[in-house]
Amino acid sequence: MKLVTAIIQPHRVDEVRAALEAAGVKGVTVSEAAGYGRQKGHTEVYRGAEYTVDLVPKTRLEVLVDDADAATVTEAIVSAAQTGKIGDGKVWVVPVDDVARVRTGEHGADAL
């Protein structure tokens, strides 16, 4: 099993969710995130004064998938989240030793 984690632009969440559903993903965890990448934040001007936005708001998605589905899910996220601009985000995949469904006590792939 793999954990696919994506940091994306908040306004791409709906597109990514639709893409994940189309890819057969049944559940996803969504949370608010903030950070910076190569763009190192940006500068805004408000009422004539400049201020620096160091941490840019992003959305974090986490999806648990079978090993065989990891590449498809990653590609679905990348395609749906991509705008081609700086700050589109990152997706990474890490192995998962085990998963348990709390309600039933099932483990492994059965718990996905």
Binding site: P10, E32, A33, A34, E44, V45, Y46, V53, L55, V56, P57
Partner: peptide, 18 residues
């Protein structure tokens, strides 16, 4: 009204204002 939400709102507001 998290910092995350406030920042998104403020960003768009500032752009529109400009």
């Amino acid at each position: 009204w998290t910092q995350w939400r406030e920042q998104l709102v403020q960003t768009l507001y500032v752009k529109a204002r400009a």
